[in-house]
Structures are given as structure tokens and as C-alpha cells.
Design a protein around this nucleic acid. Structure first.
Lengths: 134, 134
DNA sequence: CAGGATCCCAAACGATACTG
DNA sequence: CAGTATCGTTTGGGATCCTG
């Protein structure tokens, strides 16, 4: 698979040495930030339609408000989400995906589909591994 | 986008409530484990061809030997990688992707390509955000 | 309603030393 | 060579209280 060799060299190895190259690795730049516990979930929620803060809390009941705030800030900072404040009383804040966020979501869909199709195999592999190493 | 609504409801919401449903969420089961700092990198390396422990260390110079061991164990446990010990002296151990690992890698490729194509936009978004909130 | 501030814990990660 | 063991640090994340 010469293709894959090229892929790896291009995507990783060139940035793995010493010096300031690490921050310029595309894979790390992007993956590191969607690896959080909640990022993909919120991204997935917002891919549906814009939501307000409280609505997101209800959609993902087991997220703390602290982490919801922080996850939304991160998504905003990376250019994936747009935050709009409506100066009503009490205030209301809407979050929606940007074009960049929508395109990231589209790229993520393949992985989400894979997860849905194969997670049982993964769970079984874990069970089997744990049994062998008991 | 009714499609996305369906996707979200199916993939997340049903598992987000109370009870033991969370461990059965496909998205979390898979994403949580490839969200580590090194998993995708090692997966990417092994997608090229089988490697030995020391070769992987050299390919990803900034990984500690402790984390390389642990990442490889996790990949093995999830059924993505196969570990083969050759009882030579000194011993030599080869890691290669399983079918499951290769199919996960294929599903991941879309995201890796996206990262490569868009990471400059992400970096710029971050810079701009940090400037606005200085 | 949508957070900010603070405290605290657990997990992830890194560095170093040692071994079959 | 390919690990294991131990330690210390750093980060991620949860709980709680407070506010415009």
C-alpha cells in the first residue's frame, strides 16, 4: 500500500521530529480538539439545527453545565460554531454550525456510521481480550 | 434536515438518559477510545504496514515508551491490532492491523483528509478568536 | 436563561529506572 | 528489544455556589 505510506509520511512523520513542527501537524491540530468527551456529541446535535444553551443541556442530560459551556467555547474558537446573543430579558443565546462546522460534521459522518455498524464487534473484542488476560 | 434529526436521536439521545444505556452508545463506545492523544497516530502508522515496537517509536519520536505500550494494548483490546511475538533473542514483536482495524482506518480517512484540507482555516479561526477575546 | 468562579477528584500523560 | 513498575505532573471533568 504505497498510498498509505505516502499518507502517513505526509500527515504525520514530517511533523513528528523536534522543533515547532508538531503544532503544524494537520491531524493533531484537528483530532486533538474533537477527541474531547463532548465535542462530537454537541457537534452532532448542532448538525441537526441551531440550539439554545438550555436545549442542548436537555439533549445531552449527562453533561455538566460547566463542560457544555467549555465545549461550546472550543467549538466557537475553532470556527465550527457561531454564538449569537439575543439581548432579551432573560437573555437567550443560540448556537449554530458554521460552514466549516458543517463540513467537519460531514467528514465525521463516515466515522459515526462505522461506529454504529461495528461497536458490537468492538465490545466483543474487549470482552474476549479481558477474558484471555484474566 | 430531518435526516440529521433522525441520526442524532438514533445515535445519541436514546443513550443519554439515566440507566445503563450510556455504555451502549455506539458513538461513545468507539469515539472515546480513539480520542486519545496517540491512538489515531499509531493506527495511521499501522495502516501502512506492520511495524515492530521500536520502529513505531522512531516513527512517532515524541511518544513515550509507556504510552506507546499502552496505546498498542488498547488497540489490541478493541480488536484493531494484532500483536505477534517472535521468540527470538532478543525478542521481536510485530503489530499489524486486523480487518476491523483496517476498516476503522478506512472510516477515519475522511476525517484525516478533512483535517489536512482545513487545518489552516481552523488555526486561523483560533487566532482570530483569541485576538477578539484579548 | 446563560453562564462565571471556585474547589476538588480522577484519569491521562510524561520521566525515569529496572528487567527477561 | 520490548517491555514493566513507580512516581509525579498535568489536564479533563464534575459539583456547587453565585450573578447580570
Amino acid at each position: 500500500m504505497t498510498v498509505a505510506i505516502t499518507r502517513f509520511q505526509a500527515k504525520i512523520s514530517g511533523y513528528s521530529g523536534d522543533g515547532p513542527g508538531l503544532e503544524n501537524c494537520p491531524v493533531r491540530t484537528v483530532i486533538d480538539h474533537i477527541g474531547g468527551k463532548w465535542s462530537t456529541l454537541i457537534l452532532l446535535a448542532l448538525s441537526e439545527k441551531p440550539y439554545r444553551f438550555g436545549e442542548l443541556r436537555r439533549l445531552v442530560p449527562d453533561i455538566s453545565q460547566r463542560m457544555l459551556t467549555q465545549t461550546l467555547r472550543d467549538l466557537e474558537r475553532d470556527g465550527y460554531a457561531l454564538r449569537t446573543v439575543f439581548p432579551t430579558k432573560p437573555p437567550s443565546v443560540e448556537y449554530r454550525l458554521t460552514e466549516l462546522g458543517q463540513s467537519l460534521f460531514a467528514a465525521l459522518c463516515g466515522l459515526l456510521d462505522w461506529a454504529e455498524a461495528n461497536y458490537l464487534a468492538v465490545k466483543e473484542a474487549r470482552r474476549s481480550f479481558d477474558e484471555r488476560n484474566a
